[in-house]
Simulated scan of single mutants.
Amino acid sequence: MAKTFKEKYGDWALITGATSGIGAELADQLAAKGLNIVLVARKEGELRDHAERLASKHGVQTEIMPADLATAEGIAKVKATEIEIGLLVPAAGLEVNGAFEKTSYEAELKVLQLNVTATFELAHHFSRSMVARGRGGMLFVASLSGQMPNPYFANYAGTKAYVMNLGASLYGELGPKGVDVTVLSPGLTATAMVADNGMEWAKTPMVAMDPKLVAAMAIDGLGKRPVTVPGLRNKIMVAAMRFSPLRLAVKMSEKMVRNAINPEKI
């Protein structure tokens, strides 16, 4: 008989970026499987509202943790929790787009701190107790941008390539120690971050996926495969970029993004 999520991961999941987009959907679907949820995000009011909805809808316990994970103080606050975390989902992410020399240094540094430093620190911290118990899980959130060149999203793509390789490597390393690891690598998804980034994706072949479907595929992949790419169109894009000469892949990606980006950002 297949183990339940509680049998595999214990009572509590911790999800960053838990109040919007893919993170919010992951929180909802993991709560539906009976896991109690620690929700981490910057805005306390949104955290409290989402936690109350999860508790009412699914009958689970929730804890909120307002924290800015682009800061050392925010990361330290999460690491200091006394709750035994059995499933870690570092879903918080940030992107900046535009010509690399024109983007804000401060904004790009924040992308690095949130996408890379926070992901590394939380994974490293919670992996110790998971390995000691001989069970647990980590669900990383990368992006198709981490699997291919992505001009005008250069720093963001670099951070997601880090997440891709960290997670895939830990899939091989921690799996034999009882810890399930999977990387979600979504393409365009209908989230607030995508809606607010100023891109006109309708001018490209990309079609935004429903975050509910993306989250469900991510959860289904836990412990089964190192990387989950939701959607046939996205799988085809990854394959096309992987098997194309790098110079051609760069040109194709640059042309596609150039069609959608605000010309003033180039």
Rank of each mutant, 00 (worst) to 15 (best):
A2E: 13
T4E: 10
Y9T: 05
L14E: 00
L14F: 00
G23F: 03
G23C: 08
A24R: 00
A24G: 02
A27N: 01
A27L: 05
D28T: 07
Q29A: 03
L30I: 11
A32Y: 09
K33M: 11
N36H: 10
N36P: 07
N36Q: 11
I37F: 06
V38Q: 04
L39V: 08
V40W: 00
E44V: 12
E46I: 08
H50F: 14
R53K: 14
L54P: 01
L54C: 08
V60N: 08
E63I: 08
E63M: 12
I64G: 06
M65W: 10
P66G: 04
A67S: 09
L69E: 02
E73S: 12
G74I: 11
I75A: 05
I75K: 02
K77R: 15
V78N: 05
K79T: 10
K79H: 03
I85Y: 04
P90L: 06
A91I: 10
A92I: 03
G93F: 11
V96F: 05
G98N: 04
F100K: 01
F100I: 15
E101Q: 13
K102Q: 13
K102L: 14
T103P: 02
E106F: 06
E108W: 05
K110G: 04
K110N: 12
V111C: 03
T119P: 07
T119D: 06
L122E: 01
M130C: 08
V131P: 08
A132E: 15
A142Y: 06
Q147I: 00
Q147N: 10
M148N: 02
Y152L: 13
F153Y: 15
A157W: 07
T159C: 12
T159M: 06
A161H: 13
Y162V: 13
Y162L: 14
N165Y: 15
G167Q: 02
A168H: 05
S169H: 14
L170E: 04
L170D: 03
L170M: 14
P176V: 07
K177C: 02
G178P: 07
V179A: 00
V181E: 02
T182H: 01
V183R: 03
P186W: 12
L188P: 02
A190H: 02
T191R: 00
A192S: 13
D196N: 13
W201E: 09
W201P: 07
K203L: 15
P205A: 04
V207H: 05
P211S: 08
L213C: 00
M217F: 06
D220K: 12
L222H: 00
V227P: 01
V229Q: 10
P230R: 05
L232E: 09
N234L: 05
K235G: 05
K235E: 11
M237Q: 11
A239W: 12
A240D: 06
A240G: 07
R242F: 04
F243A: 06
R247S: 15
L248Y: 02
A249W: 09
S253N: 12
S253E: 14
K255E: 15
A260Q: 03
A260G: 10
I261R: 01
P263V: 13
E264T: 08
K265E: 10
K265T: 07
